[in-house]
Simulated assay, not measured.
Amino acid sequence: MITLSLIGIGTGNPKHLTLEAVDAIRAQDLILIPQKGVGKDDLAGLRQEICAQVLEGAVEVPKIVGFDLPVRDPKTADYRQRVDDWHDAIAEVWSAAIAAHLPEGGRVGFLVWGDPSLYDSTMRIAERLARVREITLRVIPGITSIQALTAAHGVPLNTIGAPVQITTGRRLRDEGWPEGCDTLVVMLDGECSFQSVAAPDKVTIHWSAYAGMANEINIAGTLSEVQEQILTTRAAARADHGWLMDIYLLHRTP
């Protein structure tokens, strides 16, 4: 029997860990850490650092093993199929790693960036793993990038009594601003889709890169006035670090 714990670790700041997450990390027999390749070692390194801090002085220390994360096949035209195939491949890698390092069963943990429930597919991959071996799933929530974003800018997520929609850059770019909501949180936007927003002089943006981390970058203002600054800053940050995670809040004035 495998007990699989998906542990939300916040956005890279070790101080974001909840007490429940700390206890969960200490309770594992095996912790698997994804390695995303050259230029993205910071992500694996931060997970390693979190483990080192949490496990310092522990009597029993879990085995910590890195694994190479499969890459999505860019040749598959259909986006959903491309993601499904990728998740299948990751589940196979998980299964092989668990079999190799925990053959008699036990407790295995994954440190999930942010929160396992929000634009993260770790639970979907766990479902695939459950099809081929018996597991008990445990999910420990974590601080989200949305919380880190609003805290960094010192702004509330919503206006009084009004809804907020969480969406992706792809949907904002392809479908435009959704009706019935004047406040959007945009995640997973590699194309800077805020450039497609109509009437940018009536939209306020709060943008953060590496939210919650030591190298956090924040820019806010009227979209028409700051979007070029965001584009330039974003490109420079990606060049410096080899990777970038960003998120932004848009509010439209009717």
Score class of each variant (00 low, 15 high):
residue 63 K to A: 15
residue 251 H to A: 13
residue 97 A to E: 10
residue 3 T to A: 06
residue 254 P to G: 10
residue 57 G to F: 13
residue 237 A to R: 06
residue 240 D to V: 03
residue 67 F to E: 07
residue 96 A to Q: 12
residue 8 G to S: 12
residue 23 D to H: 13
residue 126 A to V: 12
residue 69 L to V: 05
residue 157 L to N: 07
residue 142 G to W: 05
residue 147 Q to C: 11
residue 59 V to N: 08
residue 181 C to L: 06
residue 136 T to I: 11
residue 55 L to P: 01
residue 97 A to L: 03
residue 23 D to C: 05
residue 245 M to C: 01
residue 64 I to F: 02
residue 171 R to C: 03
residue 28 Q to T: 07
residue 53 Q to A: 03
residue 138 R to N: 06
residue 61 V to Q: 08
residue 25 I to N: 03
residue 121 S to W: 04
residue 76 T to Y: 03
residue 130 A to Q: 13
residue 229 Q to K: 08
residue 231 L to W: 00
residue 45 G to C: 08
residue 185 V to H: 04
residue 187 M to R: 08
residue 236 A to D: 05
residue 160 I to Q: 13
residue 36 K to V: 05
residue 78 D to I: 05
residue 131 R to D: 08
residue 103 P to D: 06
residue 249 L to E: 02
residue 197 V to H: 05
residue 216 E to Y: 01
residue 115 D to Y: 07
residue 22 V to K: 11
residue 180 G to T: 12
residue 49 E to I: 02
residue 34 P to Q: 11
residue 122 T to K: 04
residue 48 Q to E: 08
residue 252 R to C: 04
residue 186 V to N: 01
residue 65 V to I: 15
residue 159 T to Q: 12
residue 158 N to T: 14
residue 177 W to V: 09
residue 50 I to G: 00
residue 8 G to E: 07
residue 1 M to W: 10
residue 158 N to E: 04
residue 132 V to I: 14
residue 42 D to A: 13
residue 197 V to T: 10
residue 220 A to E: 05
residue 139 V to R: 02
residue 135 I to A: 04
residue 98 I to M: 15
residue 134 E to I: 06
residue 18 T to L: 05
residue 33 I to L: 15
residue 246 D to W: 00
residue 41 D to M: 04
residue 173 R to F: 08
residue 41 D to P: 00
residue 86 W to K: 04
residue 143 I to D: 02
residue 201 D to H: 12
residue 202 K to R: 14
residue 53 Q to V: 08
residue 7 I to F: 02
residue 92 E to R: 15
residue 168 T to W: 06
residue 244 L to K: 00
residue 87 H to Y: 11
residue 213 M to R: 14
residue 110 F to N: 03
residue 34 P to R: 14
residue 182 D to V: 05
residue 58 A to M: 11
residue 105 G to C: 10
residue 135 I to R: 09
residue 16 H to F: 11
residue 29 D to V: 10
residue 22 V to I: 15
residue 86 W to D: 00
residue 57 G to D: 09
residue 131 R to L: 13
residue 90 I to N: 04
residue 213 M to K: 07
residue 9 I to N: 01
residue 70 P to S: 12
residue 146 I to S: 00
residue 27 A to N: 08
residue 32 L to N: 09
residue 81 Q to W: 05
residue 106 G to S: 11
residue 108 V to C: 13
residue 108 V to A: 06
residue 169 G to V: 10
residue 13 N to W: 08
residue 215 N to K: 08
residue 122 T to E: 01
residue 39 G to N: 05
residue 181 C to P: 03
residue 175 E to D: 12
residue 75 K to N: 03
residue 167 T to V: 08
residue 50 I to C: 01
residue 136 T to M: 07
residue 225 E to T: 09
residue 201 D to T: 10
residue 154 G to H: 15
